[in-house]
Write a protein that binds this DNA or RNA. Structure first.
Length: 511
RNA sequence: GCACCGUUCGUCUAGGGGUUAGGACGUAUCCCUUUCACGGAUAAAACACGGGUUCGAUUCCCGUACGGUGUACCA
């Protein structure tokens, strides 16, 4: 009997959603949709001290921007509501009580200071402190203390935590859908805190209880959870929920572009690219973190890029729509090793999506960029520019740089091109061309312009190739770009003449 | 330190007991374009190392090295 597929993405609202988290959400979503299952979002806000206002809303907007749809969440509700762990507090207390009664958990009264001292002591001996079977009887808890004293402490309102009593000498094994069988000795696991002194559960308790209560069939999460999964398995057993335990799949991490460690927000600053889907302003420091959206990435491109970072269908297809990803996705094809983050590839995907986009839509995006900069432009002109530029850009914004001359006459001229391509002959030719343009009543299309230019040149007995670079220089200030006749047509007759005249005055003739 | 996970071109990856080890990004060259880009073509570029198993290992097993993650009353 196979359980219906129910997966969850469980971020904690401690800041903006990281790109690695976004990929985890994506894989969960693809898996859910592939199996016609349910995609759930659960907010893991059990650490009140790390709660960041706005983070939850940021997560919502990021997923929405990426078209990752949710079936159940705090924002839309669902059969397992509430979906915020802070609102489920009473449930955890109830379940931890069950563990207390069955002897799988115990009260512990060690203060943070005492624990810190114990850690220091063990560290001095060259080892790492573990609150486990070997030391638990030396600590201050319901196991080491006489029952009467425990009762007294509780009655006196002494702060306590509830710890899991990890069984000794047990072999814990589980099947990871990506990594295969994982085997760990229970002796390497310590007596983790289940319920904190503020009455909130830790991640370990909360995720097990909630996944059980929400009928989660597959836990798809980052590899950083792999070491604590044996503990979770032990918890399922202690609760007697082994038969309904979800299957686990631990995703490889996203690594720094170079050097060591996983991708962090610091890398964003260092390498100058975004690691967050949307721009984020830190409410405490006011610091601004760039986002993929604001950097000019299309959500489809970001998703395509992210999907292929750690997963591959085994074919040579590179471009995938969300529907295609859903159809092709499987956990078996997720790779095991961490993937280095390469922003170049993301750029390439964006370029591909831009090229494939309807021109009218591109024109509209260009218009928006221009409006944001108070640069006037008509719809028609934007469309023409886009048609000319779409194959040469990775971002719509590139048009403003590579095609700056569409919006403003050049103020400087590429000096190397001036030196090589600007001379007395070209200047004469351009002057004649300008005069011809003034007199020609003809339509101002690329072909007509070219004809006019050819007529002028043939009269002067000058070859087209000799003056084209100079003309381009006068119009654009550079030596490269799309078809010059097209550019001139877009700029218009009057502007073209004006630019030629300006150049003739501005550029000295040295040869 | 201990535990767990991993290791194919610079990067993302395909493959899998016998292959010219395939693709993509990036890089280089050429073609196209009197420019540049796009596009096309070509090239350089990889199975971490050492032992097994085997007729044969990049592929399977074991070590080593290296890397990653975890080791909180954080998630």
């Amino acid at each position: 009997m196979k359980k219906p597929v129910r997966v969850r993405f469980a971020p904690s609202p401690t800041g903006p959603l990281h790109i690695g988290g976004l990929r985890t959400a994506l894989y969960n979503y693809l898996f859910a949709r592939h199996y016609k299952g349910t995609m759930i979002l659960r907010i893991e806000d059990t650490d009140q001290s790390r709660y960041v206002p706005g983070a939850e809303e940021y997560i919502r907007q990021s997923l929405q921007w990426c078209q990752i749809e949710l079936d159940e969440s705090p924002w839309q509700g669902g059969p397992c509501a509430p979906y915020r762990q802070s609102e489920r507090k009473h449930l955890y207390a109830q379940y931890v009580q069950q563990l207390l009664e069955s002897g799988h958990a115990y009260y512990a009264f060690d203060t943070p200071e005492e624990l810190e001292q114990a850690r220091q002591r063990t560290k001095a001996e060259g080892e790492e402190f573990q609150y486990n079977a070997a030391v638990r009887m030396k600590m201050k808890n319901a196991l080491s203390l006489p029952a009467s004293q425990t009762e007294q402490l509780l009655k006196a309102g002494t702060p306590y935590v509830i710890r899991f009593k990890v069984p000794q000498g047990k072999i814990v094994r589980f099947d990871d859908l990506i990594r295969g069988e994982v085997v760990v000795s229970s002796d390497t696991i310590d007596d983790k805190v289940l319920l904190k002194s503020d009455g909130m559960p830790t991640y370990h308790l909360a995720n097990v209880v909630d996944d059980y209560l929400m009928n989660i069939s597959h836990v798809i999460r980052g590899e950083e959870w792999l070491p604590s999964t044996p503990l979770h398995v032990l918890l399922y057993k202690a609760f007697g929920w082994e038969s309904s335990m979800p299957q686990f799949a631990h995703l490889p991490l996203l690594l720094k572009p170079e050097g060591e460690g996983k991708l962090s927000k610091r890398d964003a600053k260092q390498y100058g690219f975004a690691v967050f889907p949307l721009q984020w302003t830190d409410p405490q420091t006011g610091e601004i973190w760039q986002g993929f959206r604001e950097d000019g990435y299309l959500p489809e491109a970001l998703i395509n890029f992210l999907a292929l970072l750690g997963w591959n269908p085994g074919t040579e297809q590179e471009i995938f729509s969300m529907e295609e990803l859903i159809a092709a996705f499987s956990l078996e094809k997720v790779s095991k090793a961490g993937a280095r983050f390469d922003i170049n590839k993301a750029k390439w995907f964006n370029q591909q999506y831009l090229k494939a986009m309807p021109e009218a839509l591109l024109a509209q995006m260009l218009l928006e960029e221009l409006n944001a900069r108070a640069m006037p432009c008509t719809k028609e002109k934007a469309l023409q520019i886009v048609q000319l530029m779409k194959d040469r850009i990775s971002f719509v914004r590139d048009i403003l740089i590579q095609g700056a001359f569409f919006f403003q006459a050049p103020t400087t001229y590429e000096s190397e091109t001036v030196a090589r391509k600007w001379n007395a002959t070209t200047a004469q030719a351009l002057e004649a061309f300008a005069i011809a343009l003034e007199q020609e009543p003809k339509e101002f299309t690329p072909t007509a312009i070219k004809q006019t230019l050819n007529e002028v040149l043939s009269k002067m007995n000058i070859k087209l190739g000799g003056v084209l670079p100079a003309l381009r220089l006068a119009i654009t200030g550079t030596s490269s770009g799309p078809d010059l006749m097209e550019i001139i047509a877009i700029c218009g007759r009057r502007e073209t003449i004006s630019r030629i005249k300006t150049a003739l005055q501005a550029l000295p003739i040295t040869h």
